[in-house]
């Protein structure tokens, strides 16, 4: 009993309560954080080849609009998300095809091709993109996104390679 660090009964209770409380807090608190952010940690990334139209229907130099829907399971519900874009043929070769994503690079509204303006115009903030997708006017930080991979099937369909976010 000569130790200089003698712990009083009260201090012992305080320390013990603190430690036990901290343990309970950690055991429940840390899983709670994981529970809250869990959906943000999910990996989507499903891949698919999606047909967007017949190659013969696409005219050289005229943007060909297409759209498709993907169904994803979010939580307890299936959510259908729409995607779309424009395919632009530059020549007769099926390789020489530009497939643009119509999702505006500013804040993700959908751009539309306007023949008279010779531009894709976004209805949200008046962004303008050229036929090839370059920014002409407005707030977008970069050109329209491109579906890099596409192929011509035996039935004459153009398919694009799509990867979920």
């Amino acid at each position: 009993m000569s130790g200089s660090h003698e712990l009083s009964r009260r201090d012992f209770i305080k320390v013990t309560t603190g430690i036990v409380g901290g343990l309970i807090g950690a055991v429940i608190g840390l899983p709670s954080i994981y529970y809250l952010i869990d959906p943000a940690l999910r990996e989507g990334g499903k891949e698919a080849w999606i047909p967007i139209g017949k190659f013969e229907d696409m005219q050289v130099g005229v943007p060909y609009p297409f759209s498709f829907t993907r169904v994803q399971v979010n939580g307890w519900e299936r959510t259908a998300s729409s995607f779309g874009g424009y395919a632009i043929r530059k020549s007769d070769s099926p390789e020489d095809l530009l497939v643009l994503n119509s999702r505006c690079t500013h804040l993700a509204c959908t751009v539309n091709w306007h023949e008279e303006s010779d531009a894709y115009i976004c209805p949200c903030h008046d962004a303008k993109f050229s036929m090839a997708g370059e920014v002409l006017d407005g707030p977008p930080p970069r050109a329209l996104d491109v579906y890099d991979e596409h192929r011509l099937t035996a039935d004459g369909l153009i398919e694009i390679f799509f990867k979920e976010a």
Partner: peptide
């Protein structure tokens, strides 16, 4: 059901 089986630690909460 989703809380019990789909979310991390949903069963615990």
């Amino acid at each position: 059901q989703y809380i019990m089986e789909g979310v991390a630690f949903g069963w615990l909460i």
